[in-house]
Computed example of a mutant assay.
Amino acid sequence: MTNASNNPEAARLETGLADMSPANFGLVMATGIISLAAFMMKFETLATGMFYLNVSQYGLLCVLYFLRAWRYPARFFGDMFTHLTGPGYFTAVAGTGILASQFMIIRGDLVGGGVLWVFALVLWLLLTYTIFVTFTITPRKPSLDRGINGGWLLAVVATQSLSVSSAVLAAGIDQPYRLELNFFALSMWLWGGMLYIWMMALIFYRYIFFNFSPADLAPPYWINMGAMAISTLAGSLLILNAPQASYLASLLPFLKGFTIFYWATGTWWIPMLLLLAIWRYVYKRFPLNYDPLYWGAVFPLGMYAACTWQLDQAMEFGFLTQLTHAFFYIALAAWTATFAGMLYTRVYRRGRAVIGK
């Protein structure tokens, strides 16, 4: 085996593995939701291509995360139990849930989607009760302004991704499990909404009453909107599934009202986040370099396109089509730019470093 200390490239790879962001599955989340949005809008070739790309990305990231946990357990679990980085691991749950939905919607593969759904559920249980119990009992805790950011809402996204994939799975199977899956989807939808209220109150308080620098405005703050967008998507699917379950039919006014509430809240965040981005990058001239966290900004754009399309279908509005397509193209452009930045950083610049240019 090559000694990394005598091989600069091997040393760089080891360092990259040790420093790997817990939020890297944001790549799977962003690619998956844009693939699903493309499928909704009948861009089937694009949707299928991004599906296969996402399968390969997911497999590679699973291997890398396993290697990091095996070779650098102190770093791997240290990040998990740190307030600012721990919630990033919920991207693994959300990415798995979204990939499960891709299998079921794009490929019609309920078996593959069901296996991934079970895996996402197990991950959700392990991470939710490991991370939040640890945060609760740890004796040394950061202050609010140093311990919370928009990345905490990834816990909401992970929860709602299970609601979405459960609703999709329920729509594709017969009894005896259809009722139970719809009830589970409803329960996760409600729990995700409650979790958003708790966390968003703290994040908004941190916004308003503590100093806020350009460095503090990390891309995961776009999850403020993305968490509401995926909640809208889950609610829309529950509305569409109402004929399958009498208890959903009895809750239709509630489901419709809260789904529009989620969509309106997510929509409110968009101008706010755009203005803050202008303040960060234009006024404060914060450098725009590739960071895995930028997938946390691409995902909400794609999710907003998907959820708006699904809301339009579920509510039979018919007047949100243009908005849906506009955000789809914006999300696709953002995904393309971020993916190009990732390739440039990981391949081109590393190659130049290897050959000494």
Rank of each mutant, 00 (worst) to 15 (best):
S187N: 08
T130V: 07
L60N: 04
S21M: 03
G351D: 12
F132W: 15
A30V: 07
A92H: 03
P220K: 04
F183S: 15
L251W: 02
Y196E: 11
R140M: 09
V164K: 02
V115C: 14
P22V: 04
Y294R: 13
V122Y: 03
A297F: 06
L17T: 09
Y177G: 04
F339H: 07
F39K: 09
F132P: 04
I230R: 01
A215Q: 15
S250E: 15
A74I: 10
A337E: 10
Q310E: 10
S56G: 04
G351E: 12
S213Y: 09
V63E: 00
I105E: 04
P243K: 11
F183G: 08
R349K: 14
A215S: 13
V133L: 12
F210R: 12
M104A: 08
T232C: 05
R350I: 08
N6I: 00
T336G: 14
R350C: 01
Y177Q: 14
I230K: 01
Y177N: 13
A215P: 00
A47R: 06
Y52F: 14
A11P: 00
Y207R: 13
W70Q: 07
L127Q: 05
L195F: 12
N289S: 13
I239Q: 03
A18L: 11
Y129V: 10
T321G: 11
N24Y: 05
A264Y: 07
L84V: 14
L190I: 14
Y281C: 08
L237H: 08
T321M: 13
L53V: 12
W335L: 15
M199P: 01
V28A: 04
M228T: 05
T345W: 02
V28G: 01
P220Q: 08
G88Y: 00
L181H: 05
G114I: 06
F299Y: 10
G32K: 03
Y89E: 02
N3T: 05
F212E: 12
E14I: 02
R107T: 11
G16Q: 00
G147I: 09
G26L: 03
G151Q: 06
I105T: 09
Y221I: 05
P142R: 07
D19C: 02
F204L: 15
S231G: 10
G266L: 07
A18S: 14
L190Y: 10
G32H: 05
Q313G: 09
E180H: 11
A227R: 01
G235M: 07
S231D: 03
Y329S: 08
I260K: 08
L84E: 05
W268L: 13
G257N: 14
I33K: 12
R68K: 11
T45I: 14
Q175P: 02
N224H: 09
R140H: 09
I270K: 03
F66H: 11
Y344G: 06
D291I: 01
L181T: 01
G192P: 03
M188W: 13
G296K: 04
I355P: 01
W279S: 04
I148F: 01
P271M: 02
Y294S: 12
